[in-house]
């Protein structure tokens, strides 16, 4: 079965991204296809490489990257939501005249069309951290 996950919540304030991570791993370990993980709203903060956790706590952006090393993952961060929240890649940093960029490796910025396209091609679309 083909799955797409949508993550709406920030990695520190909400449990939802952690739940999404474990769900993603379960999907992949069961032999299903994970077409895409789409990060929207405060979920874009999952792609912030500057997230720095105490040594005895999980670091969700790093956990997504680790999963993407084990399996081919398409981690797409909504570009409009990300720019508003200060999650930029090198291109957007240039475009908005910022001298820093912080999109974590393994993630890419793209539009909401990537969410709709993924939903069209997937058998199941599961939202984590909705109703916020």
């Amino acid at each position: 079965m083909i799955f797409t996950l949508v993550v709406h919540a920030s990695p520190v304030q909400h449990q939802a991204p952690e739940t999404a991570l474990r769900f993603a791993r379960a999907v992949l370990e069961a032999g299903h296809t994970l077409h895409r993980v789409f990060f929207y709203r405060d979920g874009v903060l999952n792609g912030n490489t500057l997230v720095s956790s105490p040594a005895d706590e999980s670091n969700i952006p790093e956990d997504w990257q680790a999963l993407a090393k084990e399996y081919p993952l398409d981690l797409v961060v909504c570009i409009a939501a990300a720019i508003r929240r200060g999650v930029l890649d090198a291109n957007e940093a240039r475009r908005y005249d910022k001298n820093q960029h912080n999109l974590a490796p393994g993630f890419e910025l793209s539009g909401l069309g990537q969410l709709v396209e993924a939903a069209m091609l997937s058998d199941r679309v599961i939202t984590f951290g909705g109703r916020g």
Partner: peptide, 28 residues
Amino acid sequence: FLLICSRPPYGSSAARDLLDIALTCSVF
């Protein structure tokens, strides 16, 4: 596609964020 919202028009970005998805669905 069914988009479900339970948030008031202001106080959060929920209403606008939902409409952005709706318009994108329509483009596709």
